[in-house]
Amino acid sequence: AWQGRCIATTKLRLVEFSAFMEHQQDPDTYNKHLFVHIGQSNPTYSDALLESVDVRQIYDKFPEKKGGLKELYEKGPSNAFFLVKFWADLNTTIPDDVRVFYGVTSQYESPDNMTITCSSKVCSFGKQVVEKVETEYARFENGRFVYRIHRSPMCEYLINFIHKLKQLPEKYMMNSVLENFTILQVVTNRDTQELLLCIAYVFEVSTSEHGAQHHTYRLIKD
């Protein structure tokens, strides 16, 4: 049921993704704010299939030269490509001081025991400005292999970007900035170089009182 209903292929599934700030109020109390979040879900066959977006509509929002989205998509497999539109929650009251940790947690699972490489490219006007590459090994849990990148520290570029974004007085100004801010995540099998998942992230600011929201799409090319 995962196929076509969430960020997954037969080889790897994104189980959870969150970017957050966490403030240590005192030795026993932590306040956590999620900027964006994809929670654990268990789709069934009665759930709707993901809508699709033509990958060519977003080529210019991501690197276009060697190793760019176009080249990656042409190499495939095309069923491993997804687009996530996040409505980010910037409505935080956590004070910004030295006791704040900015982090990203993600979790994947697979029927296969692999070593995966996760590349995350932050792009401005479609050009890569910073890249983080992480390698993760499998842990066998409950009959499947789990890959957990736990509390990976957010880079300075992103922390500064969030600070500046929050200072803008109007949401339409934030959305105007976010129109040219994207992130491309590519997960590969380290040993075979096979592409397992490619997720393109685009953003707006949430207007909800209920935290971050998102829509997920399959990337296709008719």
């Binding site: 809508e51 699709s52 977006v53 509509q57 129109e179 207007t207 909800s208 829509h215």
Partner: peptide, 24 residues
């Protein structure tokens, strides 16, 4: 936007792309 760049609003994207989901 850079010169020649098409705004996202003018691209062929699903209607849901512009509709923030309501919390379940």
């Amino acid at each position: 936007l850079r010169q020649g760049q098409v705004p996202m609003r003018k691209r062929q994207l699903p209607a849901s792309f512009w509709e923030e989901p309501r919390p379940v």
